[in-house]
Write a protein that binds this DNA or RNA. Structure first.
Lengths: 341, 341
DNA sequence: TTGTACGCGTTATCAG
DNA sequence: CTGATAACGCGTACAA
């Protein structure tokens, strides 16, 4: 019978008059153990409701069979969907996933990472928080054999694997669409300065304009930290212009939604004629009565799957002491929404 | 110097010519170790970047310093906010949180729970998935000393701790508000049948009508499984009635949003005059141009904090071998939204 | 004040 | 085919 602390392999071995190692092997169907023994062991294990002590296994094997996802914010549906994709692949590989929120705060991020290292996490998929500058911790982690995949947000260091959207591809598709719809004054609401991705998308915006022979106007570009207040300040500035924008290319769709909110309260007449397009197709857009013009469909679930697959390649390669680096850039479809006229 | 597998206490002890136990104690500032020794140890630990092996600790102490949250779906902002509240309290207690999605599937839920037990999780906060009937696993877990707090969704078993909204209070406030706004035909869109909470809210709806001397009409009540399709089928039925509803009391606000979507496409003229109120104040409502009439403000973040605090009480009580049961029912404010007229 | 000895549950190795 | 033994890193009771 079981004591209250849980049945162990030793308990079973004792009852069956065999050694713990035999039981251990029998439990995992090791062919060097006779079929009868295996059956006896499994039967008793079931009867006694033996639950393997995963903590002991982790310790013994110096592995956790767990990978971590570190994201700024769960409320952002882009990340939530990505998690679903990652989990899918993790489950296939018999791995568990732990989700950590950095709240876009690099100190908290470091705490999280240290704890993950300490817990012998097997791999990490991370969306770096917006102020993260110091990448030494990531270097150290890779040196310790913990594979990392950077997700969505890019970083300076070229030696890390990553999965993200193709900014140039996305910007070009967005700008082309807006031009096709007759716009000349296309503003760009960029992400926070501290984020490398903000600059990449800004540059992509410039390039896309160039390719369409539209002169770049720095006055049409403002940064936002993604809060409504910040976006609204930026917009107030933009609308002071003699030739205010008639369309927006935004860092991500959430910013586009805030633009709509702003217009509704400050320039309701412009609402209908202002086209907005940005990165990210969010489920919540389904719920909106008037939608943004379009989104660059990032399919974050698929991105998550890709990141997880990449991570598992690295986990296996680390075990084999190989070296593995890959950067995946995903091109984007534009997703048009239809508003009632 | 450190080997690549990470510095251990033994490494430090060896280098400093002392025993591992001395180092172990020094590291945690044990006063029985001389100040000088403590300093020497800590200095070297820092120099060598010693990272305690949490996996070893967990194993040795048979604790994980981690609690788990099991929810149906991360995309639901109600749960995402609850997580934030839980995390807040967990961090204060130096605990980690792992988040698991059951996708409202009880088989997956069981897998998750088994794995959590196996990992020696210290406590669980769970939103049971909608088909969960068999509660023996929870009984077993409590027997094994793993405290559980049920969150938001109620279960039959009275012997578990829980935190949820006060259905009667909520329903009464909602119905009162709708009546005040002149409605007589108030429909109820209930949750799935398999969910006890659906019945509780349904009953609360009946009671609230009674208290207002409005006869209960079963034809005004339909269940939805929360998908748009299901809700839309229910609505189609409802609008076949000779006296179709002019207002809705819904299981949760997401259903209310789907009602709006449905009306917009099928009965656009009714949209303006149909009042909708349900459980849950969701951040995404900010983004809507026309909002539901009101929400019962569940403040899931605060609910999360309460659940976590309750769980920590239980964790401490378990250690002290005490018994602890509490059910928290939170009353709700109604939150009115103002639509442009 | 410091050190010794042991156990936590599991698995890998190697001997029988 | 099975068993004995050691090892993983840490904490702790007890001895010195």
């Amino acid at each position: 019978m079981s004591n209250e602390k849980g049945v162990t392999i030793v308990d079973i071995a004792h009852r069956l008059n065999m050694s713990a190692s035999t039981v251990s092997k029998a439990l995992k169907d090791d062919k060097t153990i006779s079929a009868i023994t295996r059956e006896r062991v499994k039967a008793l294990a079931k009867e006694w409701n033996y639950i393997p002590n995963q903590a002991a296994r982790n310790f013994q094997q110096n592995k956790s069979f767990t990978l971590a996802i570190v994201i700024p914010d769960l409320l952002d549906q882009f990340y939530a969907l990505a998690i679903n994709g990652i989990e899918e692949v993790a489950i296939q590989n018999n791995y568990n996933v732990i989700i950590c929120q950095s709240y876009d705060n690099s100190e908290r991020e470091i705490n999280i990472l240290n704890h993950l290292v300490s817990s012998r996490i097997d791999g990490i998929i991370i969306v770096v928080s917006k102020n993260t500058k110091d990448l030494t911790i990531f270097d150290n982690m890779e040196k310790q054999g913990i594979p990392i995949v950077f997700f969505a947000r890019s970083i300076q260091q070229p030696s890390f694997s990553s999965v993200s959207s193709d900014h140039n591809d996305g910007a070009l598709k967005a700008i082309n669409l807006l031009i096709k719809r007759g716009h000349k004054r296309i503003a760009h609401l960029a992400g926070p300065n501290a984020l490398l991705t903000s600059h990449l998308r800004h540059t992509a915006y410039k390039k896309a304009l160039e390719q369409n022979n539209i002169p770049y106007d720095a006055a049409l570009v403002k940064a936002t930290d993604f809060s409504y207040e910040s976006t609204s300040t930026a917009l107030t500035e933009l609308y002071k212009d003699k030739h205010p924008p008639t369309a927006f290319f935004v860092f991500k769709s959430y910013v586009g939604l805030d633009i709509k909110r702003f217009l509704q309260s400050s320039h309701p007449k412009k609402l209908k004629h202002t086209d907005i397009i940005g990165f990210g197709n969010l489920p919540l857009i389904k719920q909106l009565e008037t939608k943004p013009t379009a989104s660059l469909d990032e399919n974050s679930q698929m991105m998550g799957r890709q990141a997880a697959e990449l991570l598992f390649e690295k986990i296996k390669d680390t075990e084999a002491e190989k070296f593995h680096l890959r950067k995946i850039l995903l091109s984007l479809a534009t997703l048009l929404y239809m508003n009632k006229q």
